[in-house]
Each structure stands twice: as structure tokens, then as C-alpha cells.
């Protein structure tokens, strides 16, 4: 279970998360919705361990393990995966080299052997095909010149490859065309399992018709202000966030 308690986070001296509580049991998918600037990506970054995000109070544990004690790579080894809202371009690092280095690092941490080259190639090809990622894209430097939607698919490919146990998806649907939302959702659904927990950040109810969440939370001004079942997403679609923004202010 992912357990976040009374989380306070500052960036550049500014408080962004202000006493956030959330629990995601294994096997469940929770959605987080909320207005721009409410702190959703901040939460995602803090889970992954980004440097400039200072936790001033509170705790985060994953299956009882204190994530805040771990470096970003140690968290990845512990099963944490963040699909970035804005994946970076890394010129000069070949996509395949990157995928292989990451997969081997994570496998090593899990006590598994490195994959042989043919096995690695086969796995990547399979997963890329399922996500309709052209093999040409895999020959380019990581994300360089990829379209917004292509970058998001690349994120899901990495997730499928690394098979993390805690998946955090930050607006993975933004920038995807209608077909791609469906394809990517299928990829995400394929990873749903009793051992895995997922936190899906989105602005659009549409995604949640594909990836049906067990719970939906509203994050506003750094706190969870309301939680409910999947119907809450539909309600938000109609009413917007005005009422929560006032409540939080």
C-alpha cells in the first residue's frame, strides 16, 4: 500500500503541498484531479524523489518502506515509476541504450539476471508494437524530436518494460489523440494487477472511462479536498473546481 500522511512540501521556499493524505492499497487504481497549479505534479515529483522538492513534514511509505529515505534510483528499484507530464529530450543518448541500461539496473536491483541482447530486443519490440510505437522511433536519441504524443507513448513503453509496482502517471493522456488514449490505456490496464498500485493524474474524465479508477481524489491548493468513487469524475466534469478552490482558499 502507498501511504501518504500529512505531507508538506516546499519548492524554493514556497509551500505547495499543505498536509496531503492519501492511501492507495495494492491492486487499486486511484485518480487525482484538480485545477492547474494545485500541486499534482509536485506530488508526482516528490514520490519519484526530485531534488528541489523539500518535504518539511509528513511521510510517504510504499509497502511499509520509507520512500523519503531513498534516492530516485533506489525508489525506481523499489518499484516506483513516474510517467512524466513533460518527458525530457536527451540528445546523444540512444533510446535503446537508455532502455537497456534502465532495465538492467532495475533487474539487477530485483536480483534478476540481465537480459541477453536478443531477449531484450524481442521484449522491446513486442511492447512497442502493442503501443503502436514505430521501430524508427527507437533508433533515435531519447525523445529527441518526438511529438508530444510520441513522448507520452515512450513513457508508457518504459513503464511496460520496467514493470514497476507503483505507477504514477502524470497527465499521460494530455497530448494524445483519441486513438492513442485508447491504445495507451490498454497498455496501462494490462499492467493492472493485485500486486500493483496506480496513481493516475488527469484533467479529463475521458481517460477514466478507459482506465476505470477505484477512487477519485480532488487535489486543490495542496490538499485532498474530496474523495469519491468513479462517479466523482463525472460530477467534476460538469461542475468544475470552483467550489473547491473557494473551500481551499
Amino acid at each position: 500500500m502507498l501511504k501518504i500522511e500529512n505531507l508538506h512540501v516546499e519548492v524554493d521556499g514556497k509551500e505547495i503541498l499543505d498536509g496531503l493524505d492519501i492511501e492507495v492499497p495494492k491492486g487499486e487504481v486511484h485518480a487525482i484531479m484538480g485545477p492547474n497549479g494545485s500541486g499534482k505534479s509536485t506530488l508526482a515529483y516528490v514520490l519519484a524523489g526530485k531534488d528541489d522538492y523539500v518535504v518539511t513534514k509528513g511521510s510517504i511509505t510504499w509497502n511499509g518502506e520509507d520512500l523519503l529515505e531513498l534516492s530516485p534510483d533506489e525508489r525506481a528499484a523499489a518499484g516506483v515509476f513516474l510517467a512524466f507530464q513533460y518527458p525530457v529530450e536527451i540528445p546523444g543518448v540512444a533510446t535503446m541504450t537508455f532502455l537497456r541500461t534502465a532495465l538492467n539496473a532495475v533487474r539487477k536491483a530485483r536480483g534478476e539476471d540481465e537480459l541477453t541482447t536478443p531477449d531484450f530486443m524481442r521484449v522491446v519490440r513486442e511492447k512497442a508494437e502493442a503501443l503502436k510505437i514505430e521501430s524508427d522511433m527507437l533508433k533515435r536519441p531519447l525523445n529527441v524530436g518526438f511529438s508530444g504524443g510520441e513522448k507520452k507513448r515512450q513513457e508508457v513503453l518504459q513503464m511496460a518494460l520496467l514493470e514497476p509496482s507503483l505507477c504514477v502517471l502524470d497527465e499521460t493522456d494530455s497530448g494524445l489523440d483519441i486513438d492513442a488514449v485508447r491504445i495507451v490505456s490498454e497498455g496501462v490496464n494490462a499492467l493492472r494487477s493485485p500486486e500493483r498500485a496506480m496513481l493516475v493524474i488527469t484533467h479529463y474524465q475521458r481517460l477514466l472511462t478507459y482506465i476505470v479508477p477505484d477512487r477519485v481524489h480532488v487535489l486543490s491548493a495542496g490538499k485532498i479536498v474530496r474523495s469519491g468513487d468513479k462517479e466523482l469524475a463525472l460530477e467534476l466534469e460538469k461542475s468544475g473546481y470552483a467550489e473547491y478552490e473557494e473551500a481551499a482558499a
Binding site: S71, D73, A76, I90, V93
Partner: peptide, 19 residues
Amino acid sequence: YLRARGIGELEARSLLIQA
């Protein structure tokens, strides 16, 4: 980004310098 994918700090630095 590299470290969030499980690549250790030294290896990640080395990859970026090689790039």
C-alpha cells in the same frame, strides 16, 4: 529523468557525459 528510471547517479552522469 535517468535516475527515476533506476539508473544510478554515477552511471547516469556518465551516460550524459558520453552523450
